[in-house]
């Protein structure tokens, strides 16, 4: 069960209040009249389907009913950050790789967000996994 922080309501709510709406940051072709079949097909149907860090759009459907984005790990299901529409993620697959190499892990098994300090020094040490 996800416990999702809505960036508009500014509080954590249960998964059932939300609805997943697929990959985030999709750009509609700017000039639809001069867009090839290739580009239309790519825009409509082709998606990143990563095993790992994924940026996706969710809607707080029975809450504030606003859309926002989540950066989530599709294997561990850890939610790494939520951010409003129009903003860019601070955590990406590349930055996450870097952080893992540095070994800054939080107490609950997730990875610390950018800029935050680990809660204790012990957490800063490399884990055997």
């Amino acid at each position: 069960m996800f416990h999702i922080f809505c960036p508009y309501c500014q509080e954590h709510r249960e998964e059932e209040e939300f609805h997943a709406r697929g990959q985030a940051h999709l750009m509609r072709p700017a000039d639809p009249d001069n867009t090839s079949d290739e580009e239309w097909g790519d825009y409509l149907f082709f998606r990143n389907n990563p095993r790992g860090i994924h940026h996706e759009m969710w809607v707080h459907s029975v809450g504030c009913r606003k859309f926002f984005n989540i950066t989530r790990n599709t294997v561990t299901y850890d939610i790494l950050e939520t951010y409003p529409m129009g903003e860019q993620p601070t955590i990406t697959a590349d930055s996450e790789k870097l952080r893992k190499e540095q070994g800054v892990q939080t107490a609950d098994g997730g990875w610390q967000t950018v800029g935050a300090q680990p809660e204790s020094k012990a957490l800063n040490e490399e884990t055997s996994s």
Partner: peptide
């Protein structure tokens, strides 16, 4: 489950 996932487990809802 409505989201992309590779975890081979499902959600309670």
């Amino acid at each position: 489950d409505g989201y992309v996932g590779y975890g081979q487990r499902g959600s309670y809802p």
